[in-house]
């Protein structure tokens, strides 16, 4: 479903991604873990075609992104949903308008049909009746859930999650994790999530890859991560301050 081959990217003369190879099978949820600033979000932006790689390719639905023109890239993106780290809800629109924007701009559905879909998606994420409110009136957890409702509004085949639980209290974070698992079961989507929250990674991931110094240093199942002998992986999942990774 998603194939990343030899992806390299440097930002401000710093190598962020160095010949990264990754595959995600249909229906699978891959969680990419790594320290803050290691390039997880950059990897996600390449999957969406929001950044151009220095070298390497990203192929989604059998189509190589760098060979698509803008129109075809937009068509491909419409089959994807993204939950951004900060939600990225449009301040000038209500929650309902945010959730329905993709439908109103890209489909010929009537206003009533869009309103029904929006209400259904908001109900899925536990925000029934919140549609008329402004994003600025919502709490952090509600904003994430509204953003999730927007991400799944167009029945995407691929959903990408950028730090889905960052900045949330543990209970709300657990609620978001449950929501992601439920949506995966309901929509049968393929997903990539980037996070440094190991609780979230273990809960939502079928497979976990660790990005470190621009490379994928580990790629395996949840159990394989737990039993990994790699000291970097072990230090990261334990959150230990002693080990090969400097705490600061």
């Amino acid at each position: 479903m998603i194939a990343i081959r030899g992806l390299s990217k440097s930002l401000d003369r710093r190598v962020v991604l160095n010949r990264v190879d990754l595959d995600v099978a249909k229906g699978e949820t891959l969680v990419v873990i790594g320290r803050s600033g290691c390039g997880k979000s950059v990897l996600l932006k390449h999957v969406l075609g929001l950044m151009k790689p220095d070298s390497g390719t990203v192929t989604i639905f059998g189509k190589q992104l760098d060979q698509l023109d803008r129109t075809h890239l937009y068509e491909l993106r419409m089959r994807c949903g993204v939950l951004f780290q900060g939600g990225a809800l449009f301040d000038s629109l209500t929650v309902a308008e945010n959730v329905g924007l993709g439908l109103s701009e890209n489909t010929s559905k009537s206003k009533a049909e869009i309103a029904d879909i929006v209400a259904e998606r908001l109900e899925w994420v536990g925000l029934a009746g919140v549609g008329p409110r402004a994003p600025s009136d919502l709490s952090g957890g509600m904003r994430k859930r509204a953003a999730l409702a927007r991400a799944i509004a167009m029945d995407p085949e691929i959903v990408l999650y950028d730090e889905p639980t960052t900045g949330l209290d543990p209970i709300t974070a657990e609620g978001i994790n449950d929501l992601i698992v439920r949506l995966r079961e309901r929509l049968k989507v393929t997903a990539i999530a980037v996070t440094h929250d190991m609780n979230s990674a273990f809960k939502i991931g079928d497979r976990i890859a660790m990005l470190h110094d621009g490379h994928i240093i580990f790629d395996g199942s949840v159990d394989q991560v737990r039993n990994s002998s790699d000291p970097i992986v072990q230090q990261f999942i334990a959150g230990a301050t002693t080990g090969p990774l400097e705490p600061l």
Binding site: L50, R77, G81, F84, A88, L101, G102
Partner: peptide
Amino acid sequence: EQIDALEVMGV
């Protein structure tokens, strides 16, 4: 990231 959000929604 609101402009990125528009891009990924195909807008």
